[in-house]
């Protein structure tokens, strides 16, 4: 767990989930703590200035959905980081939702058939709103059979399959 991590995540839900896992009291749900920044690497550019602030030895983690098949900016961002920091390609970890975070949660929770059941919501927007405000998300997920080893474990389809799914490198035993 030593080392530095900098997560670029697609949205607030990913941020809330990752923060909750970082602070999980249950050792088996812990992940490497790191700075979390909301920036969708498929749609937003990481500036060279920002890349220069990434310290040596950092692992950069890209967390994104794979529902829209578009990787030109993702490739640009990888290049920006490699050209403006001391990091190499192997220092970038890809965490790809197949195909969205909600789908990943349903896949990783044994007793969840659709995402609305988790927080008693209807529709994607209501779920997001409630998920972001939830103060105790890890116990909630555990109550529906959350298995962290299933989360972000599937290989996405083209054109994302060439980026190795790396969430297992972030899970830790406290």
């Amino acid at each position: 767990m030593a080392g530095l991590y900098h997560y670029f995540v697609e949205g607030e839900c990913e941020m809330v989930l990752l923060k909750a896992l970082m602070h999980a009291e249950d050792a088996s749900y812990g992940i490497c703590p790191g700075k979390i920044e909301i920036l969708n690497v498929l749609y937003q550019k990481i500036s060279p200035t920002k890349a220069r602030t990434i310290k040596k030895g950092t692992k950069v983690v890209f967390v994104f959905d794979t529902d829209i098949k578009k990787i030109d900016l993702l490739e640009d961002n990888i290049e920006t980081i490699m050209n403006n920091s001391s990091l190499n390609e192997e220092d970038i970890i890809f965490v790809q939702s197949v195909s969205s975070l909600e789908d990943e949660l349903v896949f990783a929770c044994e007793r969840l058939v659709n995402i609305g059941e988790l927080l008693g919501t209807k529709g994607r927007e209501e779920f997001k709103k409630k998920f972001i405000k939830h103060r105790d998300i890890v116990p909630k997920l555990k109550s529906v059979g959350f298995q962290i080893n299933k989360m972000w474990s599937r290989i996405p389809s083209e054109p994302f399959s060439s980026f190795a799914q790396g969430f297992r490198h972030l899970t830790i035993k406290k």
Binding site: M1, A2, G3, L4, Y5, M22, C32, P33, K35, K55
Partner: peptide
């Protein structure tokens, strides 16, 4: 646990 490492990783937000 090294608190500095946690701080650098913004564990304390």
């Amino acid at each position: 646990v090294n608190i500095k490492n946690l701080y650098d990783n913004d564990f304390f937000d």
